[in-house]
Design a protein around this nucleic acid. Structure first.
Lengths: 143, 143
DNA sequence: TAATATAGTAATAAATTATATACCAAATTC
DNA sequence: GAATTTGGTATATAATTTATTACTATATTA
């Protein structure tokens, strides 16, 4: 039990550098704006302001302005929620998606580059192990 | 080649929730203070102000104050670098380490909890796969 | 239907973070 | 040894983020 956990915990520092890269603000976005776009991108689906607010621990009062600025800059759209007329649904625009994908591209290229330090057999091993980890972590999350 | 990368990239969202948890500020620390402690904790070794500044993309002018406040609050120590008398070496105090470990404890408990959703065989698989991934990722980083 | 809870907005002050410029002392280069 | 670079500090200003309180309109509940 604790052996698995140890390995899991260790995994995080191993990916830390790349996460740092995600945090880096892309030119014209503030830290929080970036967090919001990132969160939308990760979730791959429209979210309400409240959902974002709670997940990121940003008070809803702040969200109003943040959302407005992101909208003005063309990163997201905001439309009424048909189910609940009080709330709004936030979605990434193409530009918004692109701004996030850019960061991933850098991570991707970095990884490809480092990969050459492994021989062919190790590469196959890594691929299989990553696949297994992803599969099982996902399974764990599905409560 | 691109198959491995795909799995690698996918790994990051799978760990995202826990990373979010790391970002959450613990009571009396500001966002940047937290980032600095986290970075020191991850690196497991003393760093100069410049190293932190560059890695976190925080201008050195800000560092002076940030470091001072962290020192005043007892999270870090600052001592002259013997090799280069212009620079200083920053280290986590016990309190500083503890403040970071707390967050990991939560991640750990969360993981242990989710683990019950896998059967025994899957747990063994996960452990082995995680071990493999960690081993190979580390090997890749050692240039 | 009246009372209450919820999603979001508005506005303001205080704290944090970002940007720019100038400075000192030790290190490096010529 | 003089000139230049580098690690860090000091200071002022602007932008962002946090915190507080009050408000509107829709949902929910009794």
């Amino acid at each position: 039990m604790s052996e698995i956990s140890k390995e899991y915990i260790e995994l995080i520092p191993n990916l830390f550098k790349n996460f740092q890269r995600l945090n880096q603000k892309s030119s014209c976005l503030t830290h929080l704006q970036n967090q919001i776009l990132e969160f939308l991108f990760m979730n791959q689906q429209p979210l309400t302001i409240k959902q974002i607010s709670e997940a990121l621990n940003v008070p809803k009062q702040q969200m109003t302005d943040l959302i407005k600025r992101l909208m003005d800059q063309g990163y997201i759209t905001k439309s009424q929620n048909r189910v609940d007329k009080r709330s709004f649904v936030i979605e990434l625009t193409e530009q918004g998606k692109f701004s996030q994908q850019e960061k991933w591209t850098k991570i991707y290229q970095n990884f490809i580059n480092d990969l050459t330090k492994l021989n062919h057999e190790e590469q196959l091993d890594l691929r299989y192990a990553l696949h297994k980890v992803n599969y099982l972590l996902k399974k764990m999350e599905e409560s």
